[in-house]
Design a protein around this nucleic acid. Structure first.
Length: 160
DNA sequence: GCCAACGTTGGC
DNA sequence: GCCAACGTTGGC
């Protein structure tokens, strides 16, 4: 078999750790990244995010905001089950199984950094301060990062 | 809890 | 298709 022809891409996924943090993912090993309810992000999951891509796990809306670790995409996009569950906060009565509106992917835990890389540090680092994730007004819960940005953040996270 | 900034909705 | 009102995100 030939190697995959597509190049690995790098992403940053945001989540509120009170709802689902990297410790939840570590315990599960593989988890469904669900609850995406933004069309731009849905389109990324459908058309851009691929099996084998890497992603930084970013903790948002919490005391210590920043990048907590790494994970890997292990499934193509599939319909987010929560959109069909009337008991879920993510239920969408306008979505049907024939034409699902929202997508999810499965993510695999890779590692938790030795130290959380704080948002403030991303903003001041010369190599990172232009990350799309940090652009003022950005509200996407998934943004692409460059390989060099990704690797720099891993270095910062694994430094003592 | 505040608030800036963006996304979504719906009347027209 | 415009745009005001409302809802959500997310840092602080």
């Amino acid at each position: 078999m030939s190697a995959k022809s597509t190049t690995v891409r790098y992403w940053l996924f945001k989540s509120e750790p009170k709802v689902f943090g990297i410790e939840h993912l570590r315990r599960k090993g593989v988890a469904t990244w669900d609850g995406v309810r933004n069309y731009q992000v849905r389109n990324l999951l459908r058309s851009e995010v691929r099996v084998g891509d890497r992603a930084l796990f970013y903790h948002s809306s919490t005391k210590d905001v920043g990048v907590a670790g790494e994970m890997e995409v292990v499934s193509e996009a599939f319909p987010d089950p929560l959109q069909f569950d009337p008991k879920s906060d993510y239920f969408d009565k306008g979505s049907t199984k024939a034409a699902p509106r929202w997508l999810a992917v499965k993510m695999k835990y890779l590692r938790t950094f030795k130290r959380l890389v704080p948002l403030a540090e991303l903003r001041t680092d010369q190599q990172l301060k232009n990350m799309r994730t940090l652009v003022r007004g950005n509200r996407l819960s998934i943004t692409e990062v460059t390989k060099s940005e990704y690797e720099k953040i891993c270095l910062l996270g694994n430094a003592v």
